[in-house]
Simulated scan of single mutants.
Amino acid sequence: MKLVCIGDSLTTGYGVSRDVSWISTVKNSLKIDIVNKGINGDTTAGMLSRSFMDVVEKNPTHAFIMGGCNDIMANYSLNMIEDNLYEIIKESLNHNIIPILGIEPPIIGELAVLYWGTDSNYGLINKNQILYRKWIIDICNKISIEYIDFFKLFSIKLKSTTPKNLYIDGVHPSKLGHELMSNLALSRLNKILNL
């Protein structure tokens, strides 16, 4: 069994040391072959352009696919983001690779504005993230593939803690954020992969 993870900085583990990033924790716990192909700042178009080389050619049994945050922050259309993600899913399925989608945590505007500036409309970003999450859940249900909902996880946790505990900058998770992500991912992957 082999799992290749393709995505952006939330897959790479930007902002925390590699050994505490959620994918590293999952890899150490599951003891299966996991390859991290996250690239900081990547978009769904970038992921699509490299998915054959970074996923298909690695010959995995499963592909974890998570992206879209950078597209949404750059104000790209949701239709384009969804089309790119769907093409990555189809490419995996066409090569007998089982896709698992990730839904990225919400962006916290009041914290992100301190680190990333005031150029972005965080209200619109949040609205588009919610619509994108709904689309991912709908497409997964439609074609019977699994997903891991980090958006829901963080939304629930934010009711009992401050954003500064879960994020380093309103976009990227803190060490605690990665710990929560790894716990959810381990729980879901154990079921999905029948471990």
Rank of each mutant, 00 (worst) to 15 (best):
E146H: 12
I156G: 05
G46M: 00
I145Q: 03
L48V: 03
T118A: 13
H172I: 06
I107P: 08
D54L: 04
L30V: 13
H172F: 07
M53E: 15
G170R: 14
E110T: 13
K152L: 10
N40V: 12
D19T: 06
L158Q: 08
V4N: 02
G123L: 06
S21H: 11
Y76W: 07
K127L: 10
D169N: 01
T43D: 11
N59G: 05
S49Y: 01
C69L: 11
I156H: 10
N190Y: 12
K37L: 03
D8Q: 06
N94Y: 03
G109A: 07
D149H: 06
C5A: 14
I130V: 15
L180A: 05
H95S: 07
H172N: 08
Y132F: 15
N96C: 13
L131G: 07
S49P: 06
N28A: 14
T12H: 09
P163I: 06
T11A: 13
S51W: 01
T162E: 15
L30H: 10
L10W: 08
D83T: 09
L186P: 06
N128W: 02
I136M: 10
P163H: 04
I143D: 09
D42R: 01
S182Q: 09
L30S: 12
L189T: 13
D8F: 01
N59P: 02
I97Y: 04
H62E: 08
M66C: 02
I108K: 10
Y86I: 12
S187Y: 12
